[in-house]
């Protein structure tokens, strides 16, 4: 059976047996090692795992945005709508990135925004017709006050939360069907994290786009996602609906992750009780 036949119906993204092996200092690192992954239209899917588990590499390999590293093996199939991303030409990939395909927001918005260009210009660049009103509408949509002022600012003149919203505005410019969010709240303060998560939730509802969130924070998964993939050592050790995975984890690693996460919560609650008069 060819891998194309194994494509699940109605899936926006369907990844089968994806392997990304990197060549690092003469050794092969199996960053992603035979992962199956799928996202339905309008679904919010989480990918959770510790640092180095391969979750970011998985996302970048899917949208063909690998950093400049030596790749020892890259195999499997990636279907996005009708396109086979593994064999897609540069032109096809660029078209998908520019219009109704997929986009990505990154962990560190300061490093991922050009320091020498104004924010408005960087958003306009992602639009097919660089229309100022569209730029302002996008800034407004991601919940930034005074869009005119923000558009004229340079990234270093904005706060961390504002920069992440600008990243989201850039990602939304192409009206993507699927948005990858790579640790979108990790570099932010707790209150700003909440605002960015609320923004993502609101955008998901208003636009109906699918979102794949990569995080190490189970709280984010519990709050936003319909389904979750748990990754460890380049493999997806468990996947399922958030409720199923959280209530009856099948893999010991998932159980441990949940136990540690709840333990943090309990410690915090105990601390709060002790501090209370």
């Amino acid at each position: 059976m060819s891998s194309f036949q194994s494509q699940k119906p109605n899936m926006l993204l369907d990844v089968c047996n994806l392997k990304v092996h990197l060549a690092v200092d003469g050794k092969t690192v199996r960053a992603v090692d035979g992962v199956d992954f799928a996202v339905a239209p309008g679904e919010v899917v989480g990918i959770v795992g510790e640092s180095g588990s391969g979750k970011s590499t998985l996302a970048r390999a899917i949208i063909q945005l690998m950093p400049n590293v030596a790749i020892a093996e890259l195999s499997g199939t990636i279907r996005f709508n009708d396109a086979d991303l593994m064999t897609a030409s540069g032109t096809v990939l660029r078209r998908l990135r520019r219009q109704n395909g997929f986009s990505m927001i990154f962990q560190d918005p300061l490093g991922y925004l050009n320091p020498t260009q104004k924010v408005g210009r960087q958003i306009a660049e992602a639009l097919d017709n660089s229309d100022d009103n569209r730029v302002l509408a996008l800034l407004h949509e991601v919940g930034l006050p005074k869009p005119h002022q923000v558009a004229r600012s340079y990234p270093h003149e904005l706060s961390g939360g504002m920069r992440q919203r600008v990243m989201i505005a850039i990602a939304l410019a192409s009206e993507p069907a699927l948005l990858f969010a790579d640790e979108p709240t990790t570099s932010l303060d707790a209150t700003v994290q909440r605002q960015v998560l609320d923004t993502l939730r609101r955008l998901h509802k208003s636009r109906g786009m699918a979102i794949a969130i990569i995080t190490h924070d189970l709280g984010v998964i519990a709050e936003l996602c319909d389904r979750v993939y748990v990754m460890r050592g380049g493999k997806a050790v468990e996947s399922g609906t958030v409720v199923d995975v959280f209530e009856t984890p099948q893999h010991p690693y998932t159980a441990e992750l949940i136990r540690l996460s709840t333990r943090h919560l309990q410690v915090a609650q105990q601390g709060a009780q002790r501090a209370a008069p």
Partner: peptide, 21 residues
């Protein structure tokens, strides 16, 4: 190797326009 080049690629810009801009 900077992150904003990755963002530019994610925007679907061509190689020549990434280099230019």
């Amino acid at each position: 190797s900077q992150g904003y080049i990755m963002t530019a690629r994610a925007k679907g810009l061509s190689r020549s326009s990434i280099i230019r801009k």
